[in-house]
Amino acid sequence: MIGFVVGVFAIAGMIKGTIGLGLPAVSMGLLSLVISPFQAATLLIIPSMVTNFWQLFAEGHVWRLVCRFYPLLIGIVVGSIWSIFPTLGHANSSFHTEALLGGMLALYGLYGLFSKSMPNLATHEKWLSPIVGYLGGALTVATGVVVIPVVPYLQSLQLKRDDLVQSLGLAFTVSTLCLAVFLHLNPVENTPIDYKLSLIALIPALMGMWMGTKIRYRIPEQKFRKVFFCGLVIFGIYAVLHQLGVI
């Protein structure tokens, strides 16, 4: 089990180091093949928190971004408390959680393939931020992954590169904190949170990120992104169809 977890986080970290995202999505997708989504989400807590803090505080001006995106952050918190979706570990929700996770991974992959055609939503930021935040928080405690719709939304605001990276790190950090609190307050019977294994998973994740930064300069990033997102689409669709009993 430990060997599988180490391998998953090494791969996920490498992908994040190469293209700057994907650690939670890849980790949840692969881990959910052999353990429950709740267990997979608990293993994400420490690796996600550390890498998100790294991403958030790599540059300055964090408070400026907090002041701008506080409606989004409040929405994430509210969504994690009152989710409209079946949450991780909820009674009889395993089917819905895994199908929802598969659907999110497929949407994430499609978004990654066609993100260049995203419209500019900056003029609607004031009223969209709390809505997007709520959906992001609700989906985080339902699937263990904060992707849709937070990532596409932030990238549609036409932020400068450093602001975008930090804004994503800010949203990821708040979402991970909310997920950690949710998992702690809503434990599944006979499934304690394994903080030790989560801490162990941090090591291959950081090593993978380091390897990913090296790979970034050796292969065309756009080609790598295309293969990665196509893989997410295929994997996500397979997960949904498998849960529906089609395959």
Rank of each mutant, 00 (worst) to 15 (best):
Cys230Lys: 06
Phe228Gly: 13
Val233His: 12
Asn52Arg: 07
Ala171Ser: 14
Ala122Pro: 00
Leu101Asn: 03
Arg225Met: 12
Met28Asn: 10
Thr143Glu: 06
Arg68Glu: 13
Trp210Arg: 15
Arg64Ile: 04
Thr18Lys: 04
Leu128Glu: 04
Leu30His: 07
Cys230Glu: 10
Glu98Met: 12
Cys230Asp: 06
His184Ser: 14
Val8Lys: 05
Ile46Lys: 09
Val34Ala: 15
Leu100Phe: 02
Leu107Ser: 08
Leu199Ser: 15
Asn92Glu: 15
Val8Pro: 09
His90Asp: 14
Val5Ile: 14
Ile234Phe: 13
Ser156Trp: 03
Trp54Met: 15
Leu100Ala: 05
Ala12Arg: 02
Glu189Arg: 10
Phe53Tyr: 12
Leu232Lys: 09
Gly109Asp: 01
Ala239Phe: 03
Val5Trp: 01
Tyr70Glu: 03
Pro86Lys: 02
Pro192Ala: 07
Tyr108His: 12
Ala99Asp: 01
Cys230His: 09
Ser94Phe: 09
Gln39Trp: 03
Leu157Val: 06
Lys116Val: 04
Leu21Ile: 14
Leu202His: 08
Leu157His: 07
Asn190Val: 06
Leu154Trp: 04
Phe53Arg: 02
Thr87Trp: 00
Pro149Thr: 04
Lys196Glu: 12
Arg218Ile: 06
Gly112Ala: 01
Tyr153Trp: 02
Ser83Cys: 03
Val146Ile: 15
Glu189Leu: 12
Val77Ala: 13
Thr97Cys: 11
Gln155Met: 15
Gly75Glu: 02
Ser48His: 07
Val141Pro: 03
Lys226Pro: 01
Gly245Pro: 05
Gly20Lys: 00
Pro24Gly: 08
Gly3Met: 12
Gly144Arg: 03
Ser94Gln: 13
Val150Trp: 00
Thr87Cys: 00
Ile234Lys: 08
Met104Ile: 13
Asn52Phe: 10
Leu121His: 05
Leu183Met: 08
Trp82Leu: 08
Ile84Asp: 00
Tyr238Gly: 10
Ile84Trp: 00
Val181Phe: 08
Val66Ile: 14
Pro130Tyr: 00
Met209His: 06
Gln158Tyr: 06
Ser115Glu: 12
Glu189Ser: 14
Ala138Ser: 14
Phe228Pro: 10
Glu125Pro: 04
Thr123Gly: 10
Ile46Trp: 07
Gly22Trp: 04
Lys223Arg: 12
Ile15Asp: 05
Ile193Cys: 09
Tyr70Lys: 08
Thr123Phe: 13
Ser80Arg: 01
Ala25Pro: 00
Gly109Val: 00
Val240Gly: 09
Ala10Phe: 15
Ala180Tyr: 01
Thr176Asn: 15
Ala10Trp: 10
Leu105Gln: 03
His96Arg: 02
Leu31Trp: 05
Ile219Thr: 13
Phe53Thr: 07
Phe228Trp: 05
Thr176Pro: 01
Gly17Arg: 05
Phe114Tyr: 14
Phe38Asp: 06
Phe95Leu: 14
Gln222Cys: 06
Val145Asn: 07
Ile247Glu: 04
Val147Trp: 11
Gly137Tyr: 00
Leu100Cys: 05
Ile247Cys: 08
Pro192Thr: 05
Ile237Gln: 08
Ile203Leu: 15
Asn120Cys: 07
Ala106Arg: 02
Lys226His: 12
Ile247Leu: 14
Ser117Trp: 11
Arg64Met: 10
Met14Phe: 11
Asn190Pro: 04
Leu43Lys: 09
Val66Met: 10
Pro152His: 07
